[in-house]
């Protein structure tokens, strides 16, 4: 299957969803003009739908498997998952601990094998980045202590 055909299909569904949600938007009784809060989302939904149709009708020769290969590599997916979990837990985890753990796991994941590096870098980064943001930029990052 051509990659662009697949994406065109996905985008067409997305455009339909956009149009549906846009039609559900509340219009205030006081607004009088013909151009309302729904107009731009509608217009944009139509443009995306048209673009999607062109992609379906005139796709580039690239195949779907070839396109998705980099996304589906285990290493990439693992890193994506790691990043996602890190973001979800950001609020609840002490910043220094979170940075240390994220650094450690992702360095190992990306191929760092030197034990000294794995021991030092995460701790050093956690300390330095925390100091810079907390005391330099005065950002209150989440902390336990």
């Amino acid at each position: 299957m051509r990659a662009d055909r697949f994406m065109g299909g996905v985008l067409l569904l997305f455009a339909m969803a956009t149009l549906w949600f846009a039609s559900e938007l509340r219009i205030l009784p006081s607004s009088s003009t013909t151009v309302t809060t729904r107009s731009l989302p509608f217009a944009v939904g139509v443009v995306i739908a048209l673009g999607a149709l062109i992609l379906i009708l005139r796709p580039s020769p690239r195949l779907l498997g070839e396109t998705l290969a980099p996304v589906l590599r285990p290493q990439a997916m693992a890193f994506v998952a790691l990043l996602f979990v890190y973001a979800l837990t950001f609020r609840y985890v002490d910043f220094r601990f979170g940075v240390w753990l994220f650094m450690l796991v992702s360095m190992a994941l990306l191929g760092e094998r030197r034990p000294l590096m794995l021991a030092i870098m995460p701790i050093a980064c956690a300390a330095v980045i925390f100091m810079i943001f907390r005391y330099g930029f005065i950002v209150l990052v989440p902390t336990w202590i």
Partner: peptide, 26 residues
């Protein structure tokens, strides 16, 4: 393998710093 995690952390912390919002991070 060292630069990528550092950049990722700086990005996430930077996003948080804009509005101190953990929602923005997600």
């Amino acid at each position: 393998p060292i630069l990528t995690p550092i950049v990722a952390i700086l990005c996430i912390t930077g996003v948080y710093a804009v509005n101190s919002s953990s929602f923005d991070v997600i």
